[in-house]
């Protein structure tokens, strides 16, 4: 297939400004690997929404931080999104991004039995970044995130789903594949390779 000059491949395209990642059961180890192998020069901010125990407020950031090359932050309400950082949705709050690149937290009802809900985080991040965001959906046991990914895709964002064959639990990747028609289906190494080969503006 010929590549159109108007639409460079994702790696060549310098338009991307942020990455949003969702995951649930079976995604923790994948996320640890991604964060430990992602290069420091890839400085797009990463917004992370992983399902987690609501009563355990502390420890999750620390666990992710151990092998991560990037600083992981659980943002406070209205905290600004900054380059190079990883932002993790806090337990028992929904995490949205608002215009002006500020985070907004909320205790609204659970969505897909989840708070934080991946759908809300992806949807709001894609609203802010439109076609300049890369969405990644990892292993998980429900369909939270699939609608968010389909909206991200519709707005022109680049959509990656973890290969269901590699995923510990493939319900979430399969739902995302079905609803969002992703641009790439990749295993963990493939995701890392793609992120590390991104050309940045």
């Amino acid at each position: 297939m010929l590549k159109s000059l108007n639409s460079p491949s994702v790696e060549e395209n310098t338009k991307y400004k942020a990455i949003v990642i969702g995951g649930s059961a079976g995604s923790f180890q994948v996320m640890v690997k991604i964060l430990s192998e992602i290069s420091n020069t890839m400085d797009l901010p990463i917004i992370l929404c992983l399902h987690r125990l609501k009563h355990i407020r502390n420890g999750f950031v620390e666990a992710l931080q151990i092998k991560s090359r990037k600083k992981i932050i659980e943002p406070e309400d209205k905290e600004s999104l900054k380059k190079g950082n990883v932002y993790l949705a806090p337990s028992n709050y929904h995490l949205s991004l608002e215009l002006g690149n500020k985070f907004a937290l909320s205790t609204e009802d659970m969505v897909n039995n989840s708070r934080p809900s991946i759908d809300l985080t992806i949807q709001s991040s894609s609203y802010v970044f439109k076609d300049k965001i890369i969405g990644i959906m990892l292993s998980g046991a429900n369909k939270d995130g699939a609608l968010g990914m389909s909206i991200l895709k519709k707005r022109g964002g680049f959509c990656i789903v973890q290969d269901p064959l590699e995923s510990t639990i493939n319900t979430m990747p399969n739902a995302a594949i079905e609803q969002a028609n992703p641009d790439r289906i990749l295993n963990t190494d493939g995701i890392i390779k793609l992120l590390n080969s991104l050309k940045l503006s």
């Binding site: 949205s96 991004l97 608002e98 907004a104 909320s106 609204e108 809300l120 709001s124």
Partner: peptide, 9 residues
Amino acid sequence: YAISSFKRR
């Protein structure tokens, strides 16, 4: 009001 949650409401 914060726009993201207000819109959802």
